[in-house]
């Protein structure tokens, strides 16, 4: 029986928008395929060794106050995280976590908050503090995905950075250039809540597949699951947004 370990970064502080659903989705989709799965919760002050043993990483969004506490803790562990991502260990970084993996976040008053610099992007707070809120549909290599976005920051990708997809409806990275998220090696950064994985199982499976490939150093083909309910839930919202899947 194959096994993967999922590292959930800062569940106690970085889980404001139902992001636990992503962990539930990953865990269940492994379980249904008889892949043994272990989730370790990496809260502030966690041991570096715990991060070393992870085959898949997840981090959600949070409020500013909590984000500050987290950033101090994660800065100390940056090297391990960077090594993992460079090696191709898959990760999913939502909203606040996505911004934090970039180079910096510029607040409305011009203050720069440094990020980890792993993703080639930066984020700016909008002058008017208008948040980008609503249902969003994005065209990606894994098909059209659907979620809900709610963010104040506008993210801009570096020249060579690859977006996760193209916005069909909604705002995406910045509401201007039509890009949403970023994909680097096997890691994904995105603004999509919803949470993203339950209604977009292709993304969940991409992460699981890559985790197995890196861990067992062999091509992995996942057993197909019955996703009719997942697809139906997605198509109901797509229809409302007048989008054909």
């Amino acid at each position: 029986m194959k096994q993967i370990t999922i590292g959930w970064l800062y569940p106690r502080l970085m889980s404001t928008y139902g992001d636990r659903g992503n962990i539930i989705s990953l865990s269940k989709r492994c379980e249904w395929r008889e892949i043994d799965v272990k989730v370790i919760e990496l809260n502030v002050g966690f041991d570096k060794k715990q991060l070393e043993e992870c085959d898949l990483l997840f981090m959600g969004g949070a409020q500013d106050r909590e984000q500050k506490v987290v950033s101090e803790d994660l800065l100390i562990k940056k090297e391990i995280l960077l090594k993992k991502i460079e090696k191709g260990v898959p990760g999913l970084f939502i909203c606040g976590a996505y911004q934090f993996l970039g180079k910096y976040y510029k607040e409305a008053d011009g203050t720069i908050i440094n990020g980890l610099g792993i993703f080639d992007l930066y984020t700016e707070s909008s002058n008017k503090e208008e948040r980008l809120i609503g249902n969003i549909a994005v065209k990606t290599n894994e098909g059209t995905i659907i979620g809900f976005e709610n963010h104040g920051g506008r993210t801009f990708l570096g020249e060579d950075a690859k977006p996760l997809g193209k916005v069909i409806s909604g705002f995406g990275n910045n509401g201007k250039d039509g890009t949403e998220g970023l994909i680097y090696k096997n890691s994904i950064g995105t603004y999509l809540h919803g949470p993203i994985l339950p209604k977009n199982p292709s993304i969940a499976d991409f992460l699981i597949e890559k985790a197995l490939e890196i861990k067992y150093k062999e091509k992995s083909v996942l057993k197909k699951l019955d996703d009719s309910l997942e697809n139906k839930a997605k198509s109901v919202i797509a229809k409302r947004m007048s989008i054909n899947l």
Binding site: G18, R20, G21, I133, G134, N135, F148, H193, G194
Partner: peptide
Amino acid sequence: GTDVSWIWD
């Protein structure tokens, strides 16, 4: 509220 993400919490 138009976001139903919270049901996962």
